[in-house]
Amino acid sequence: MVDRDLPVTDDELHAYVDGELPIGRRKTVEAWLAVHPDDAARVAAWRAHAELIRVRYGGAARNPVPARLNLARLARAERKWTWMAAAAVVSAFLIGGATGWFGRGALVSAPSAAVTTVTAEALDAHKLYVTEVRHPIEVPADASHLLPWLSRRVGSTLRAPDLATFGLKLMGGRLLPGHSGKPAAMFMYESASGDRYTLYCARSAAPETALHYNVAGQVAAVYWGDGDVGFVVSGPADRERLIKIAQAAYEQLDRRTRGSS
């Protein structure tokens, strides 16, 4: 009741119109408006103008969204752009005469420990198994349980990308002990000429999409993270080809475009 004696400010009138006024004060404002016709007229005008604005522009939210604002489409275009930028940084760095690690875009940052660890494990596994003549893989590609099994063990839905455009055929996969004993999966691909590539998948605490290219002698690896899984594509140290293969794998594996996770 004490409130009733306090004059109502302009700020309160606006807050009243916008539903921002504390309930306790609302009645006071209504009582004030009943005896202050000028203020009541202003409040009515503000409401009318707000309604005009909503009528004028409300339709823009009801019209069908044009194709160029399709989010999935924009995301695809954006990812291509990101990869081109990342590849450009890699190339620039390599042309500069050095080999090493690279962050995304213009930021050449040191890789996180997780990236280094996962890549090292992937390269070790790659080197160990690609030279294997009789048992390079554990489960062949045509075994229906290959993906469900590895997915279950790694703890993430895994897919083996189709790399036929690079002349690579999926041979199969195997389960490996990853970082601190956690299960990791490796898929192996082979070209007609016998070149072997591997895709290593492990749960990783380095979720960024940054592209990391690393050369280790005759072989090289490209790492990227997607959610809580780190992926490493390893193969002969031909950076252009390896980046293209990694890009294709990334495109196919990107969980964000699969519509579920």
């Binding site: 409300g58 939210a61 009801r62 969204v65 979720p207 993270g225 969980r255 996770s261």
Partner: peptide, 22 residues
């Protein structure tokens, strides 16, 4: 970051497009 639901983020963005156009 790895725990975040990127699908949910996309859905939220998608849902906001009509209002953003307005």
């Amino acid at each position: 970051g790895g725990e975040r639901d990127l699908g949910g983020f996309r859905q939220d963005v998608e849902a906001a497009i009509p209002a953003l156009r307005r």
